[in-house]
Structure formats: structure tokens, C-alpha cells
Design a protein around this nucleic acid. Sequence first.
DNA 1: TGTGCTGTACTATCTACATATTACAGTGGT
DNA 2: ACCACTGTAATATGTAGATAGTACAGCACA
Lengths: 131, 131
Amino acid sequence: MLININPTNGLAVYDQIARQIKFAVANRVLRPGDLVPSVRELAKNLAINPNTVARAYRELQAEQIIQTVRGTGLEITVAAPEICRNARQELIRLRLREVLEEAGRSQLSRTQVKQLFDKELSQYDETGNAS
Amino acid sequence: MLININPTNGLAVYDQIARQIKFAVANRVLRPGDLVPSVRELAKNLAINPNTVARAYRELQAEQIIQTVRGTGLEITVAAPEICRNARQELIRLRLREVLEEAGRSQLSRTQVKQLFDKELSQYDETGNAS
DNA sequence: TGTGCTGTACTATCTACATATTACAGTGGT
DNA sequence: ACCACTGTAATATGTAGATAGTACAGCACA
């Protein structure tokens, strides 16, 4: 199945759905013109309420990743791949900035933060690409 | 005043209190043996409920930053300065690790993440120490 | 043209969390 | 011993967010 829900994740169900769609788009599992599963079909498969799926799709529409084709369903937009690939990078950038701001409030020096980062980076085993 | 509350912060009031106490300890504004303001006094000054202050203090006790002196108040522990200084560094480390994990899930390469970090770091103006 | 699919909007419920209310228990100082 | 202060526990209230229930509106296809 395309989507996999973990109810004890802390993440909202609709958020998990939206993330996984974006992930699939970024990795070309879903391509422009493909239809995402219908609200009711996906809801049935995941044993959740259709409106929860609808909410995920609403967010994806707001980000112009899917668009409605009335009477037919929701399809991946042409712009979606670029949006999703940019978005995940921007997300990481934003998170990094937040951490740096917090470090600043804690009066950690730039070099201290850099040392922490390098150490964590070297410890972290990537699952995907080579470095 | 020692504590300053911003109600439109997104952060819970009790959390703001706890953070600012820790901050004061880390920067030697509060030293071991000092008494923190009493629950009712601080609550009155901040125009909030005493129990909200109590909750902040409860967390600080759980982290062994303050300890109760019955009938007298709550005092900064001997271990507090080290705990607070370590804690803020650990907090940053944890946040960095989370970002790296998210980057891994997004299949961003190690070098990509490092580039993002270096760029953000160079843009970020520290408020406190020199680098 | 009608039936079955599509998405969507409105409202209600459920849950988690922060905060407030109240009452209780112990200690220091007069 | 008593009073005024300390912290603390239990409970209630308020609020925001996620999810569910129901009803509605448009299009495809036979």
C-alpha cells in the first residue's frame, strides 16, 4: 500500500498522509498526472474517517501538490516534483535555523555549535544516499 | 524582575518560567543556596495562578535544579549550575540530531545537510559571545 | 437522464494540555 | 501554642487540535 499509518507516532494522521504523499512525489513514485487514492478508498484501507484523508488532501492542494479533477479525483500537479524536492530542503533549513536561534539564546558560541553539529553528523548513519 | 512572561509566545507560561530560571542559573545570576521567589509572590507579580508557578518549580525539582527547604522556600541546588550548563548543550545536541534524522528520512545527502548548516551558521548573528 | 462515483463544507465529539480553584500539610518565628 | 508564611496535592475549567458524522454539490459514464 502507498500509505502507512502509525497511530502512536505523535504525528497527526492527516499529517502522516500528507508527508508520505510528498515523499512519494519527491522520489518519483508518484508522477504528475497520477491520481492519488480517492478519499473514501484510502479512508477505508486505513480504517479512518474519510474527512481525515480529505484534510490531508486539502493541505496538499494548498501547497499545489495535487489538484482536483472534478468527478474523477485528485491528480499530482506538474509543479509537484519541484515543490516537494524544494520543500524538504527548506524544511531542513528552517529547522536548522531554529536550532541556531535557540543556541544563540543559550549563549552558545558559534564554534561550540559547529562542534556539536560535526560530531552529530559524523555519528549519524545515512539510510539513503552516499555522502 | 527576574522573570518575564510573554503570553503570546506559543510557549506555556510554566515552561517560560522554568527556562528563565535555568537560564539565570547557567549565567550565575542565581547561585547555589539562593532562594527562588515564593510560589505566591511570583504568581502575584506575574498576575498568574500560584499553581502555574508551582508547576514550573515542580519541573525544576525533578531536574534537581532547585530543592525544597520546608517552611522556608526553594533554593538553588549545588549541582544546578553544572546541570543547567550541560542541559542547554544537550538540548541543542538533541535538536541537531532530530534534524539530521529528518534529513536522512528525506534522503538528503550528508554533504547537502552540511552545506545548509554552514550557510545558516554564517548568516546567523550571535547575540552573545564571540565566535 | 439517472446512478455512482468524486471532493467539500459544516458541525459535533473526543482528547490532551495549560491554567485556575480550592483545600491541605509542614516549618519558622513570635 | 499560634499565626503567617512556605510548598503540594486533587480537582475543575477552559481551550486548541485532531478526528468523526452527516449532508451537500459536481462530474463521468452507461
